[in-house]
Design a protein around this nucleic acid. Sequence first.
DNA 1: TAGAGACTAAACAGGG
DNA 2: ACCCTGTTTAGTCTCT
Length: 668
Amino acid sequence: MMVESASETIRSAPSSQNGVGSLSGQADGSGGGGATGTTASGTGRDVTTGTDSNGEMSPAELLHFQQQQALQVARQFLLQQASGLSSPGNNDSKQSASAVQVPVSVAMMSPQMLTPQQMQQILSPPQLQALLQQQQALMLQQLQEYYKKQQEQLHLQLLTQQQAGKPQPKEALGNKQLAFQQQLLQMQQLQQQHLLNLQRQGLVSLQPSQASGPLQTLPQAVCPTDLPQLWKGEGAPGQPAEDSVKQEGLDLTGTAATATSFAAPPKVSPSLSHHTLPNGQPTVLTSRRDSSSHEETPGSHPLYGHGECKWPGCETLCEDLGQFIKHLNTEHALDDRSTAQCRVQMQVVQQLEIQLAKESERLQAMMAHLHMRPSEPKPFSQPVTVSAADSFPDGLVHPPTSAAAPVTPLRPPGLGSASLHGGGPARRRSSDKFCSPISSELAQNHEFYKNADVRPPFTYASLIRQAILETPDRQLTLNEIYNWFTRMFAYFRRNTATWKNAVRHNLSLHKCFVRVENVKGAVWTVDEREYQKRRPPKMTGSPTLVKNMISGLSYGALNASYQAALAESSFPLLNSPGMLNPGSTSSLLPLSHDDVGAPLEPLSSNGSSSPPRLSPPQYSHQVQVKEEPAEAEEDRQPGPSLGAPNPSASGPPEDRDLEEELPGEELS
DNA sequence: TAGAGACTAAACAGGG
DNA sequence: ACCCTGTTTAGTCTCT
């Protein structure tokens, strides 16, 4: 009642989320990256200019200068490319084509007019990589030089102060250190933001090693672990941190709540902002937003969502953003604990990056084995016009691009074509039942769906059936079905009224669901024969299917949050003609057919207990179950629960599906 | 463009 | 009266 009505009110969220999505989509597509980039560096400059009074370039300015320099070099590079276009001996026809067509027009323009996006379209991925790596190395070098300079200066100051025999108050000394450290941290932040911006614009696709390189060098130069010691070493124990917090507090209180969302975090916990990949799904969901939140959702914070603090392991409830900011300042100030947590988080991210690299490699091998020719260079030249926001109108999964961009066009497991359309509860018409086998998909991505607020790309009917079949006696009450939904899918922990209604509707509507009066009440069972009838006899090679096939190849081993992270960068690719043009589609068809046919869900879902083709005995047995559930419960072997993903389910089932899918379809 | 499938919303009824 | 369960209808969207 209350819950229902409450959720009913929440229901309006999706529709509004669509609006948000479109908004962010605009921002993303129409130069949001550039906006974020300038904004990021802008805030950085605002922050830092005050602290640098020695006439030298502030860190922010230095970085800004570096960015400009990078752009200049890139432009020159482009001009060179444009002038040397007469040699179409490039191996990659696509790349050469894009390099030939665009630069000619681009070269007519003033080089300064080139935007990163344009460069991205013009340069081939390797070129971009090389270029940006070069620039990053340069930046790094200069930053380190700057750091050394600052350090020397500081030492000099300290020496002179000591020699002067006037023991400067500890606090003053500490404040100097503090300011210096702040500058360094801001440098890191700015560098990070710069890289993020570049990545966000698709200019950089850092391999894990590459990503960890530049990003880590500075933290190593100014090791985060040293920070607390620095704080404590120079000033009174805890005092500097307190001061800094107070300062931030002043800033926070001084600025409107709208401004706090962005001004506060980097300053309050610099080391945190250095790793904009906080843990877990919530952050993944919001971290993309954080780049533009100051533009569209001023009242948000990457570490704040659903009324609670998303700091790893915190989950403190905060009523509003202001309270959260307070909480952030008090509980997550720059101290040993926070620093340690950040380091842990950093390691988590690195591990994920490594894992991603491995899984990507595996995927490529798999796809290559299946003749999908995946190892083609990523079509970077494809303008990334399909914003992730379009793909995620609900704004739920907005993975950060700060992590290494996926090498292969991956997508989150659960996001079939359906999610491409409306996302959220919006129309997600899809050939869901043709999607990858729900059972294996669920088994492999169980954790993903469980944690990520992503709508599963399955129909209600298939989900209900799955829920029922997962139980030993193949029957569930309505409430148990509800519970299964909420247990298995984070998505269904919201909007309860909507999907529960849909579940009931599906149960009643589809003949494949049979209601059986039990002793305790009514239970629902699945009439597999009817269910199979629902399946159309033949598949066609629709793009949807191909997409589903791609998702069906699945990435079960991937961490859920990282899978979500993969989603964003993969969607544009999936939608790009380069990936799914008719030609490639046709080449994919055979496999897609197989895999898509795999939705012979009974096959994989029930493994041993439910043969691929439902033999009449099997069917009758199921009918029996309905009538005598208790009895059947005993002689039925509890089939491999899909909810508990078994490792074996990830491999063989696919093969089996591939083999038996066709005959299965003839069933109907 | 029509048809089918799917989703959402809502109304209604019966039982506890 | 309220809630849950179940049925039914209607509108809409997407895909073929």
